[in-house]
Design a protein around this nucleic acid. Structure first.
Lengths: 141, 141
DNA sequence: CTATCTATAATACTTTATAGTACAGTTAAC
DNA sequence: GTTAACTGTACTATAAAGTATTATAGATAG
Protein backbone atom coordinates (compact mmCIF):
# COMPACT_ATOMS: atom_id res chain seq x y z
CA UNK A 1 0.00 0.00 0.00
CA UNK A 2 1.19 3.52 -0.70
CA UNK A 3 2.63 5.63 2.08
CA UNK A 4 -0.10 8.30 2.13
CA UNK A 5 -1.95 6.09 4.58
CA UNK A 6 1.03 5.95 6.92
CA UNK A 7 1.60 9.68 6.59
CA UNK A 8 -2.04 10.42 7.39
CA UNK A 9 -2.01 8.18 10.45
CA UNK A 10 1.33 9.60 11.49
CA UNK A 11 0.00 13.15 11.23
CA UNK A 12 -3.17 12.41 13.15
CA UNK A 13 -1.30 10.63 15.90
CA UNK A 14 1.12 13.51 16.23
CA UNK A 15 -1.75 16.00 16.39
CA UNK A 16 -3.43 13.81 18.99
CA UNK A 17 -0.39 14.28 21.18
CA UNK A 18 -0.58 18.08 20.82
CA UNK A 19 -4.15 18.68 21.95
CA UNK A 20 -5.42 22.24 21.83
CA UNK A 21 -2.47 23.70 19.98
CA UNK A 22 -1.49 24.20 16.36
CA UNK A 23 1.22 22.04 14.84
CA UNK A 24 2.96 23.16 11.64
CA UNK A 25 3.38 21.07 8.53
CA UNK A 26 7.13 21.45 8.92
CA UNK A 27 7.05 19.81 12.34
CA UNK A 28 4.91 16.95 11.06
CA UNK A 29 7.07 16.51 7.97
CA UNK A 30 10.16 16.39 10.17
CA UNK A 31 8.67 13.70 12.37
CA UNK A 32 7.47 11.66 9.41
CA UNK A 33 10.73 12.06 7.50
CA UNK A 34 9.22 13.46 4.31
CA UNK A 35 9.08 16.77 2.47
CA UNK A 36 6.68 19.38 3.92
CA UNK A 37 4.90 19.79 0.59
CA UNK A 38 4.12 16.11 0.57
CA UNK A 39 2.68 16.10 4.06
CA UNK A 40 0.58 19.15 3.23
CA UNK A 41 -1.09 17.24 0.42
CA UNK A 42 -2.03 14.53 2.87
CA UNK A 43 -3.13 17.11 5.42
CA UNK A 44 -5.23 18.84 2.77
CA UNK A 45 -7.06 15.57 2.23
CA UNK A 46 -7.65 15.08 5.94
CA UNK A 47 -8.88 18.64 6.20
CA UNK A 48 -11.19 18.27 3.23
CA UNK A 49 -12.89 15.40 5.01
CA UNK A 50 -13.19 17.18 8.30
CA UNK A 51 -10.70 15.25 10.40
CA UNK A 52 -8.47 18.26 11.03
CA UNK A 53 -8.62 22.04 10.82
CA UNK A 54 -5.93 24.41 9.60
CA UNK A 55 -5.03 28.02 10.01
CA UNK A 56 -2.75 30.06 7.78
CA UNK A 57 -0.27 32.72 8.79
CA UNK A 58 1.97 33.22 11.78
CA UNK A 59 1.10 30.88 14.63
CA UNK A 60 -0.95 28.80 12.24
CA UNK A 61 -0.82 25.10 11.58
CA UNK A 62 -3.04 22.05 11.97
CA UNK A 63 -5.19 20.72 14.76
CA UNK A 64 -7.56 17.82 15.34
CA UNK A 65 -11.18 18.61 14.53
CA UNK A 66 -12.80 15.52 16.06
CA UNK A 67 -12.51 13.31 19.12
CA UNK A 68 -9.69 10.78 19.02
CA UNK A 69 -12.20 7.96 19.24
CA UNK A 70 -14.16 9.24 16.27
CA UNK A 71 -11.42 8.41 13.76
CA UNK A 72 -10.22 4.90 12.98
CA UNK A 73 -7.84 3.20 10.54
CA UNK A 74 -10.66 2.23 8.21
CA UNK A 75 -11.75 5.86 7.81
CA UNK A 76 -8.24 6.77 6.77
CA UNK A 77 -7.77 3.73 4.59
CA UNK A 78 -10.86 4.65 2.63
CA UNK A 79 -9.57 8.17 2.25
CA UNK A 80 -6.04 7.42 1.13
CA UNK A 81 -6.02 3.89 -0.22
CA UNK A 82 -9.42 2.61 -1.23
CA UNK A 83 -9.01 -0.09 -3.84
CA UNK A 84 -5.35 -0.61 -2.97
CA UNK A 85 -5.77 -4.32 -2.32
CA UNK A 86 -7.32 -4.89 -5.73
CA UNK A 87 -4.82 -6.97 -7.68
CA UNK A 88 -3.79 -5.29 -10.92
CA UNK A 89 -5.33 -6.87 -13.97
CA UNK A 90 -3.56 -6.49 -17.31
CA UNK A 91 -6.04 -6.10 -20.16
CA UNK A 92 -6.51 -9.72 -21.04
CA UNK A 93 -7.67 -11.39 -24.21
CA UNK A 94 -11.41 -10.94 -24.67
CA UNK A 95 -11.53 -13.88 -27.05
CA UNK A 96 -10.55 -16.27 -24.30
CA UNK A 97 -13.16 -17.38 -21.75
CA UNK A 98 -10.79 -16.87 -18.87
CA UNK A 99 -9.33 -13.63 -20.19
CA UNK A 100 -12.75 -12.16 -20.85
CA UNK A 101 -14.14 -12.66 -17.35
CA UNK A 102 -11.27 -12.96 -14.88
CA UNK A 103 -11.03 -9.25 -14.17
CA UNK A 104 -14.69 -8.92 -13.22
CA UNK A 105 -14.64 -12.02 -11.03
CA UNK A 106 -11.50 -11.00 -9.14
CA UNK A 107 -12.74 -7.46 -8.75
CA UNK A 108 -15.92 -8.65 -7.06
CA UNK A 109 -14.02 -10.97 -4.75
CA UNK A 110 -11.59 -8.26 -3.68
CA UNK A 111 -14.37 -5.80 -3.08
CA UNK A 112 -15.63 -8.27 -0.55
CA UNK A 113 -12.11 -8.71 0.77
CA UNK A 114 -11.72 -4.99 1.27
CA UNK A 115 -14.95 -4.76 3.22
CA UNK A 116 -13.75 -7.65 5.33
CA UNK A 117 -10.49 -5.80 5.91
CA UNK A 118 -12.54 -2.78 6.90
CA UNK A 119 -14.19 -4.68 9.73
CA UNK A 120 -10.74 -5.37 11.11
CA UNK A 121 -9.35 -1.86 10.71
CA UNK A 122 -12.41 -0.27 12.29
CA UNK A 123 -11.26 -1.67 15.62
CA UNK A 124 -8.28 0.68 15.73
CA UNK A 125 -9.01 4.31 16.60
CA UNK A 126 -6.44 7.08 16.75
CA UNK A 127 -6.86 7.01 20.51
CA UNK A 128 -5.76 3.39 20.52
CA UNK A 129 -2.83 4.13 18.28
CA UNK A 130 -1.67 6.81 20.67
CA UNK A 131 -1.86 4.24 23.47
CA UNK A 132 0.02 1.66 21.43
CA UNK A 133 2.74 4.19 20.63
CA UNK A 134 3.09 5.07 24.31
CA UNK A 135 3.21 1.41 25.22
CA UNK A 136 5.85 0.77 22.58
CA UNK A 137 7.84 3.65 23.99
CA UNK A 138 7.74 2.20 27.48
CA UNK A 139 8.94 -1.15 26.20
CA UNK A 140 11.99 0.59 24.78
CA UNK A 141 12.98 2.23 28.03
CA UNK B 1 -1.51 -5.26 -5.35
CA UNK B 2 0.88 -6.30 -8.09
CA UNK B 3 -0.36 -8.27 -11.05
CA UNK B 4 1.62 -11.45 -10.39
CA UNK B 5 -1.29 -12.56 -8.25
CA UNK B 6 -3.75 -12.05 -11.09
CA UNK B 7 -1.43 -13.77 -13.55
CA UNK B 8 -1.02 -16.76 -11.27
CA UNK B 9 -4.76 -17.10 -10.74
CA UNK B 10 -5.36 -16.61 -14.43
CA UNK B 11 -2.86 -19.34 -15.30
CA UNK B 12 -4.29 -21.80 -12.81
CA UNK B 13 -7.84 -21.17 -13.95
CA UNK B 14 -6.86 -21.68 -17.55
CA UNK B 15 -5.07 -24.92 -16.71
CA UNK B 16 -8.11 -26.01 -14.74
CA UNK B 17 -10.13 -25.76 -17.94
CA UNK B 18 -7.62 -27.93 -19.83
CA UNK B 19 -7.57 -30.99 -17.59
CA UNK B 20 -5.19 -33.77 -18.55
CA UNK B 21 -3.39 -31.92 -21.28
CA UNK B 22 -0.39 -29.65 -21.52
CA UNK B 23 -0.89 -25.92 -22.09
CA UNK B 24 1.99 -23.81 -23.37
CA UNK B 25 3.23 -20.59 -21.79
CA UNK B 26 2.50 -18.85 -25.08
CA UNK B 27 -1.15 -19.81 -24.89
CA UNK B 28 -1.41 -18.65 -21.29
CA UNK B 29 0.43 -15.43 -22.06
CA UNK B 30 -1.92 -14.77 -24.95
CA UNK B 31 -4.96 -15.26 -22.79
CA UNK B 32 -3.57 -13.11 -19.99
CA UNK B 33 -2.36 -10.40 -22.36
CA UNK B 34 1.24 -10.32 -21.18
CA UNK B 35 4.64 -11.35 -22.49
CA UNK B 36 5.38 -15.11 -22.42
CA UNK B 37 8.59 -14.55 -20.46
CA UNK B 38 6.64 -12.82 -17.76
CA UNK B 39 4.10 -15.57 -17.43
CA UNK B 40 6.87 -18.15 -17.31
CA UNK B 41 8.31 -16.44 -14.27
CA UNK B 42 4.96 -16.71 -12.53
CA UNK B 43 4.57 -20.30 -13.68
CA UNK B 44 8.06 -21.09 -12.37
CA UNK B 45 6.92 -19.90 -8.95
CA UNK B 46 3.77 -22.00 -9.08
CA UNK B 47 5.82 -24.99 -10.14
CA UNK B 48 8.38 -24.46 -7.40
CA UNK B 49 5.60 -24.71 -4.86
CA UNK B 50 4.05 -27.79 -6.39
CA UNK B 51 0.84 -26.33 -7.77
CA UNK B 52 1.66 -27.19 -11.37
CA UNK B 53 4.01 -29.43 -13.33
CA UNK B 54 5.87 -28.62 -16.52
CA UNK B 55 7.47 -30.47 -19.37
CA UNK B 56 10.03 -29.12 -21.78
CA UNK B 57 10.35 -29.80 -25.48
CA UNK B 58 7.85 -30.42 -28.24
CA UNK B 59 4.38 -31.11 -26.91
CA UNK B 60 5.46 -29.76 -23.55
CA UNK B 61 3.80 -27.13 -21.41
CA UNK B 62 2.14 -26.81 -18.03
CA UNK B 63 -0.49 -28.82 -16.23
CA UNK B 64 -2.19 -28.77 -12.87
CA UNK B 65 -0.47 -30.91 -10.24
CA UNK B 66 -3.19 -30.84 -7.57
CA UNK B 67 -6.95 -31.06 -7.26
CA UNK B 68 -8.80 -27.86 -8.07
CA UNK B 69 -10.18 -27.75 -4.56
CA UNK B 70 -6.74 -28.00 -3.03
CA UNK B 71 -5.67 -24.52 -4.15
CA UNK B 72 -7.27 -21.30 -2.96
CA UNK B 73 -6.69 -17.56 -3.34
CA UNK B 74 -4.91 -17.31 -0.01
CA UNK B 75 -2.32 -19.89 -1.08
CA UNK B 76 -1.57 -17.83 -4.14
CA UNK B 77 -1.67 -14.52 -2.31
CA UNK B 78 0.97 -15.78 0.10
CA UNK B 79 3.09 -16.92 -2.81
CA UNK B 80 2.93 -13.81 -4.93
CA UNK B 81 1.96 -10.93 -2.68
CA UNK B 82 2.62 -11.58 0.99
CA UNK B 83 3.09 -8.27 2.78
CA UNK B 84 1.47 -6.34 -0.05
CA UNK B 85 -1.14 -4.73 2.20
CA UNK B 86 1.52 -3.37 4.55
CA UNK B 87 1.44 0.41 4.15
CA UNK B 88 4.81 1.80 3.13
CA UNK B 89 6.59 3.56 5.96
CA UNK B 90 9.16 6.24 5.10
CA UNK B 91 12.10 6.21 7.51
CA UNK B 92 10.76 8.54 10.12
CA UNK B 93 12.50 10.65 12.71
CA UNK B 94 13.78 8.50 15.55
CA UNK B 95 14.00 11.49 17.83
CA UNK B 96 10.24 11.93 17.75
CA UNK B 97 8.02 9.65 19.85
CA UNK B 98 5.62 9.10 17.00
CA UNK B 99 8.30 8.77 14.36
CA UNK B 100 10.25 6.29 16.41
CA UNK B 101 7.43 3.83 17.00
CA UNK B 102 4.79 4.27 14.30
CA UNK B 103 6.34 1.81 11.89
CA UNK B 104 6.41 -1.03 14.40
CA UNK B 105 2.85 -0.38 15.57
CA UNK B 106 1.40 -0.24 12.06
CA UNK B 107 3.36 -3.28 10.99
CA UNK B 108 1.87 -5.34 13.80
CA UNK B 109 -1.64 -4.16 13.04
CA UNK B 110 -1.34 -4.98 9.35
CA UNK B 111 0.09 -8.38 10.05
CA UNK B 112 -3.14 -9.05 11.86
CA UNK B 113 -5.06 -7.49 8.99
CA UNK B 114 -3.36 -9.75 6.47
CA UNK B 115 -4.24 -12.85 8.48
CA UNK B 116 -7.79 -11.61 8.63
CA UNK B 117 -7.76 -11.16 4.88
CA UNK B 118 -6.44 -14.70 4.59
CA UNK B 119 -9.51 -16.10 6.30
CA UNK B 120 -11.60 -14.44 3.63
CA UNK B 121 -9.50 -15.51 0.64
CA UNK B 122 -9.33 -19.11 1.83
CA UNK B 123 -12.97 -19.46 0.93
CA UNK B 124 -12.24 -19.19 -2.79
CA UNK B 125 -10.72 -22.25 -4.44
CA UNK B 126 -9.68 -22.51 -8.08
CA UNK B 127 -12.66 -24.79 -8.58
CA UNK B 128 -14.95 -22.01 -7.42
CA UNK B 129 -13.22 -19.49 -9.67
CA UNK B 130 -13.80 -21.74 -12.64
CA UNK B 131 -17.47 -21.87 -11.71
CA UNK B 132 -17.66 -18.12 -11.29
CA UNK B 133 -16.03 -17.61 -14.68
CA UNK B 134 -18.51 -19.98 -16.30
CA UNK B 135 -21.38 -18.22 -14.56
CA UNK B 136 -20.09 -14.86 -15.70
CA UNK B 137 -19.87 -16.18 -19.23
CA UNK B 138 -23.49 -17.35 -19.15
CA UNK B 139 -24.62 -13.94 -17.94
CA UNK B 140 -23.03 -12.42 -21.00
CA UNK B 141 -24.84 -14.64 -23.44
C1' DC C 1 5.18 45.58 6.12
C1' DT C 2 7.62 41.62 7.37
C1' DA C 3 8.15 37.00 9.12
C1' DT C 4 5.64 32.86 9.38
C1' DC C 5 2.55 30.06 7.97
C1' DT C 6 -0.89 27.32 4.47
C1' DA C 7 -2.10 26.09 -0.50
C1' DT C 8 -1.00 24.36 -4.79
C1' DA C 9 0.95 23.96 -9.50
C1' DA C 10 4.67 22.44 -12.00
C1' DT C 11 8.94 19.99 -12.66
C1' DA C 12 12.62 16.74 -11.68
C1' DC C 13 14.14 12.65 -9.83
C1' DT C 14 13.95 7.81 -8.13
C1' DT C 15 12.10 3.45 -7.74
C1' DT C 16 9.32 -0.23 -9.22
C1' DA C 17 6.81 -2.81 -12.61
C1' DT C 18 6.70 -4.57 -17.02
C1' DA C 19 8.24 -5.65 -21.69
C1' DG C 20 11.43 -7.47 -24.61
C1' DT C 21 15.84 -9.82 -26.23
C1' DA C 22 18.96 -13.41 -26.25
C1' DC C 23 20.42 -17.77 -25.57
C1' DA C 24 20.95 -22.36 -23.25
C1' DG C 25 18.70 -26.78 -22.25
C1' DT C 26 15.03 -30.48 -23.22
C1' DT C 27 12.13 -33.39 -25.93
C1' DA C 28 9.38 -35.49 -29.77
C1' DA C 29 9.05 -36.53 -34.37
C1' DC C 30 10.70 -37.12 -38.72
C1' DG D 1 20.86 -37.07 -35.53
C1' DT D 2 18.79 -32.91 -36.97
C1' DT D 3 15.03 -29.89 -36.65
C1' DA D 4 11.06 -27.62 -34.61
C1' DA D 5 8.63 -26.74 -30.43
C1' DC D 6 8.93 -26.16 -26.07
C1' DT D 7 10.73 -24.52 -20.95
C1' DG D 8 14.23 -21.83 -18.09
C1' DT D 9 16.57 -17.78 -17.02
C1' DA D 10 19.81 -13.84 -17.25
C1' DC D 11 20.02 -9.41 -18.96
C1' DT D 12 18.60 -4.91 -20.84
C1' DA D 13 15.16 -1.41 -22.10
C1' DT D 14 10.96 1.00 -21.42
C1' DA D 15 6.92 2.59 -18.99
C1' DA D 16 4.54 3.85 -14.92
C1' DA D 17 4.14 5.22 -10.25
C1' DG D 18 5.85 7.36 -6.26
C1' DT D 19 8.40 11.01 -4.18
C1' DA D 20 11.20 15.20 -3.71
C1' DT D 21 11.91 19.84 -4.87
C1' DT D 22 11.16 24.46 -6.63
C1' DA D 23 8.41 28.29 -7.24
C1' DT D 24 4.84 31.29 -6.20
C1' DA D 25 0.49 33.06 -4.34
C1' DG D 26 -2.38 34.05 -0.34
C1' DA D 27 -3.41 34.57 4.83
C1' DT D 28 -2.35 36.28 9.42
C1' DA D 29 -0.07 38.02 13.72
C1' DG D 30 2.83 41.24 15.60
Amino acid sequence: MNSDFTLAIHSLTLLALQPGRMTTSDAIADSAGVHPVRIRKVLALLKKHGFIKSKEGTGGGFIFALGLNEVNLWDIYKLTSEGAIQPKCPDSNEKCVVGAHMQKVLFAIFQGAEEHLGEFLKHYSIKQLVDLIKQEKENCE
